[in-house]
Nucleic acid binder design. Sequence first.
DNA 1: CGAGGCCTTGACCGCGGTCAATGCCCGTGG
DNA 2: CCACGGGCATTGACCGCGGTCAAGGCCTCG
Lengths: 188, 188
Amino acid sequence: MKSQLQKINEFINNLGREEYSILEKISTTKTYKKGEVLLHQNETCRFTYSVEKGILRKFYLNDGKEITTEFLFEDDIAVSFDSYVLQKPSREFIQAITDSTVSQLDYHSFQEAKSLHSELVKLDLLITEYYAMWLENRLLEFHTLNATQRYLHLLSNQPEIIQQIPLSYIASYLGISLETLSRIRAKI
Amino acid sequence: MKSQLQKINEFINNLGREEYSILEKISTTKTYKKGEVLLHQNETCRFTYSVEKGILRKFYLNDGKEITTEFLFEDDIAVSFDSYVLQKPSREFIQAITDSTVSQLDYHSFQEAKSLHSELVKLDLLITEYYAMWLENRLLEFHTLNATQRYLHLLSNQPEIIQQIPLSYIASYLGISLETLSRIRAKI
DNA sequence: CGAGGCCTTGACCGCGGTCAATGCCCGTGG
DNA sequence: CCACGGGCATTGACCGCGGTCAAGGCCTCG
């Protein structure tokens, strides 16, 4: 997983000037206030959102309850994946948890850039591979760890999440109720 | 999801003869007997296995118990994803559930082919995107459906699984015990 | 006919969910 | 400056889904 991040960073550093400047040209930087929604459910995800500052989350609604699927920090990329890839309405919301600065890359511009510069396809592949591995690990955790273990695992791997984010979001991210999370924390 | 499969098929049909013949050259067809293991845990996954005939499954061990993560039918591709991408030892096994014929594609040959033919990178991307969406959906199902609903969902989406595969494999694929699956089936 | 693999059924239990009350912190306005 | 209200977290009582353990049924194949 981490070695994949290295690959991605190296790849970006070794990109030709031309490709690099194209990416810059088709990206726009925007700021969002805490609580603001970048992408609504049923909207088609036109952008990938690269976090420059702040924290985002992705979530969807199930029986009216918000289920958080991912937290995004600096240098992470937020995107409603299937909506973006298939250019169809999104199940997920993307929301700013804190005031945030984001560099957004337009789908169609990026598609065009990829068709002209095959290096960008490789970059896209590396990033998609990373996301797939992240998903595989998340599935594995749900199948092999109980609620307490998942919390401890999060605590040791991403302590920044626990400190900066409301427990209700964290609970749904861990697949448990807010009350259960509270009890787990009380025991430790 | 299905539209992504269409994209992939179209893309393969529109591949140049050259790319096509390269893929053929670096693939080898093999047959495996029921129960035979194509990839062991801790072995590095050197191949992608494209199923031409038969059924494969992927699984890993947790406390000595087998957890099945995926069933692969004709035209599906079996690969221990993170092991293949990072070329590191695999957590998962890949095993033939029935006598099977498989076309296997070597990692290093494919990497080389991709570096010479950027069309193949695009193909790799499309397939990886499909896998990521499949994983996203699987995660969603675990979070939104209970055991009975997951079984019914499987029954309506992939009835072939229920008919041809031992219930013990299906139970672990659904994330439940064999006994619970049996009780669910009794109620219907 | 007997053995072993696979599935079913029963009894019991614990993890984590739900509902509801209470606590705590903080911003706002009187 | 205090009082109040709202948002967020904690705690308690209760319950049900699905797990575990163990026994029993049912094929298939030697």
